[in-house]
């Protein structure tokens, strides 16, 4: 019996963590704009950002390939300017799983911001605070439960992504093979149920813990006055 290679699990954790950072960095301002802003095209934008939720993962991955592939305009630019090839590289997995996970952060984040009464923010401004200070001391503390559950949901979604990541990053053992691909490889291609079961247990544990945390967060939502 060979030693179990845990590297797909660690790679998945790394990819999911970086993807979550990417999602929060881009999704936080977008959620705030969608919750507070009033502009032309808001409806279309709100719809477009939810597309990854309804598109088949392979379609999503193929679109990303079209955008980021070496022959695409953006992919070529990245490769020439930064020497960075996204496709068939683990960073492509970060981008692919981030896109797939994006709506799962955006939806709770947006409703968390919408749940903060604008009146409280106006009061904070009138009490001498700058917009940034109002965000940090009023909006964020009142929205953090929703934001935190969004972060967890996005992380779990990114951790388990299969289709989009496979399309963009491929399945190269030790380089881009994530835990989902390792399970598929072990269970379907190599008839190695033990490896598949161990990885399944590990991913399931992380997912269940994450769900318990989100449910606890929502159960403890503060009463609104």
């Amino acid at each position: 019996m060979s030693e179990l290679d845990l590297s797909p699990f660690w790679l998945s954790l790394r990819i999911a963590s970086l993807a979550t950072l990417l999602v929060v960095a881009t999704g936080l301002p977008l959620a705030l704009v969608l919750a507070r802003g009033n502009f032309v095209g808001k409806g279309i934008l709100s719809g477009v950002v939810l597309l990854p939720l309804v598109m088949p993962p392979t379609v999503l991955g193929y679109v990303l390939l079209l955008i980021l592939g070496r022959r695409s305009w953006l992919g070529g630019l990245l490769e020439h300017a930064l020497g960075w090839t996204v496709v068939f590289h683990w960073s492509g997995g970060v981008i692919a799983s981030a896109v797939a996970a994006f709506p799962l952060f955006l939806l709770p984040a947006r409703s968390a911001f919408e749940g903060v009464e604008p009146r409280l923010e106006q009061m904070a401004r009138l009490l001498g605070r700058t917009n940034w200070s109002v965000f940090a001391s009023v909006t964020l503390p009142l929205a953090w439960r929703g934001l935190a559950s969004g972060v967890i949901l996005a992380f779990v979604r990114a951790l388990g992504d299969f289709g989009a990541t496979l399309m963009v990053a491929g399945d190269m053992p030790g380089r881009t093979r994530t835990v989902s691909m390792a399970i598929y490889d072990a269970a379907v291609l190599r008839d190695d149920p033990k490896t598949a079961l161990v990885f399944t247990a590990m991913v399931s544990t992380v997912s269940v813990v994450a769900l318990v945390i989100t449910q606890t967060l929502w159960a403890r939502r503060p009463r609104t006055p």
Partner: peptide, 20 residues
């Protein structure tokens, strides 16, 4: 003038206390 520089106190019918 932005709100923060106005030097105005405001109270209204419902309280707007920061719940946290």
């Amino acid at each position: 003038m932005p709100l923060r520089a106005r030097g105005i106190g405001y109270i209204d019918q419902r309280d707007s206390l920061f719940p946290h």
